[in-house]
C-alpha cells in the first residue's frame, strides 16, 4: 500500500501542474471513479448478444519484415458468467483447422482448450499461459480476451484531450495471478466510453507495449467496434496490426457452439 501511495504521489505531483483539482481527490475517490468508468465502458459494450468476425493480423519485425495470420472469431455474451470465445485459425497453412476455445471466468483464470486437427485431439491449455504470445504476434492470450471488470482494481488518473474527443485516463491493476502486467493505463473517450489507447507495464513496472485503437464503427445502432488495433512492443521493436472485418451480429450462436464437443466440429 505504501508503494501505491508513493506512485499516486508522483502522479499527483505531475497532475498538480496540469489539473490541480484532480489531486484533491483521495485514493478511495480515485478508485471509485476508476471503477465507475470501467463499469460504464463495460455497460456500453454489453448487450450485443453474439457476433462473428474476421481477423487479419500483420506482424512486423524491427527490420520491417511482415508475416500474416488469418482467423475467424465467434463471441457469445453470457448474463451470469464470463464471455465465450472461439478462435478458428485459417492462415498460415500449417495451423489451419486449429481452434481455441476460451471460457472467461470473472475472478479467476480462464479455461482454455485447443483443438488440434492432425490428431482430432482436444487439449487443455495451461492458465499460466496468459502472457504467451498469440500466434507469434505482439498480442498475448491475455490481450486477445476482452477483460472482465472484476479482473482489475482501478484508479482514475486524469482527463485529457485525445484527437477530437475528451478522454478520461485511468489505471487498472490485474487482480488475477498469471498476468504479465503490473498495471495498464487506459484512455476512454467520455462520449461513448470507447477505448483509444492502452499502455501496458510489465511486472518490473517498465513500459512494455502500447495498444492504439482506431476506425470505430457503430453496429446495431448502439455498439462501437474498432476495425484497427495496433500493438507496439517498445522493448523488441516489433508491432502487430490487427484488422477486424466482416462483423455479423446476433447470428445463430448459443452455448452449445462453445463446448468441447463443438470444438471437434469446427472444421
Amino acid at each position: 500500500m505504501k508503494k501505491l501511495t508513493g506512485t499516486l504521489f508522483v502522479i499527483c505531483s505531475l497532475g498538480m501542474v496540469l489539473a490541480p483539482s484532480v489531486c484533491a481527490e483521495s485514493d478511495e475517490e480515485a478508485a471509485a471513479k476508476g471503477l465507475e468508468i470501467a463499469q460504464a465502458a463495460q455497460d456500453a459494450k454489453e448487450g450485443f448478444g453474439n457476433y462473428i468476425a474476421k481477423q487479419v493480423m500483420v506482424l512486423k519485425d524491427r527490420k520491417g519484415r511482415e508475416s500474416k495470420r488469418e482467423l475467424r472469431v465467434q463471441i457469445l455474451e453470457l448474463e451470469e458468467q464470463g464471455d465465450r470465445l472461439l478462435f478458428l485459425f485459417d492462415e498460415p497453412r500449417d495451423v489451419r483447422g486449429t481452434a481455441l476455445l476460451i471460457h472467461s471466468n470473472e475472478n479467476q483464470p480462464d479455461d482454455q482448450w485447443f483443438f488440434l486437427p492432425a490428431t482430432n485431439r482436444v487439449t487443455r491449455l495451461n492458465s499460466s499461459g496468459q502472457s504467451k504470445s498469440f500466434m507469434g504476434s505482439e498480442f498475448s492470450y491475455e490481450d486477445m480476451n476482452p477483460p472482465e471488470v472484476s479482473k482489475f482494481t482501478y484508479k482514475y488518473l486524469r482527463d485529457e484531450p485525445c484527437d477530437e474527443f475528451n478522454c478520461t485516463v485511468s489505471e487498472r491493476v490485474p487482480v488475477t495471478k498469471g498476468s504479465n502486467y503490473s498495471r495498464q493505463v487506459v484512455w476512454y473517450d467520455d462520449e461513448a466510453y470507447r477505448v483509444w489507447k492502452i499502455e501496458y507495464y510489465d511486472r518490473r513496472g517498465d513500459h512494455l507495449k502500447t495498444l492504439t485503437v482506431n476506425d470505430y464503427e457503430q453496429y446495431l445502432d448502439e455498439y462501437w467496434f474498432a476495425q484497427t488495433m495496433v500493438m507496439t512492443n517498445h522493448v523488441n521493436g516489433k508491432s502487430t496490426t490487427l484488422n477486424w472485418s466482416d462483423f455479423e451480429f446476433q447470428v445463430d450462436l448459443d452455448e452449445d457452439d462453445f463446448t468441447q464437443t463443438s470444438l471437434r466440429r469446427t472444421r
Binding site: N120, R121, D256, T259, T261, S262, R265
Partner: peptide
C-alpha cells in the same frame, strides 16, 4: 457425415462414416 440438433436434454450429435476419435 455429421449432424447435430438441440434436444431437451442437450445437444445431440450424430456421426456416421469413417472417423478419428481421440481419448486421453
Amino acid at each position: 457425415l455429421v449432424h447435430y440438433r438441440p434436444t431437451p436434454l442437450g445437444e445431440l450429435e450424430m456421426r456416421v462414416g469413417l472417423g478419428r476419435v481421440f481419448w486421453g
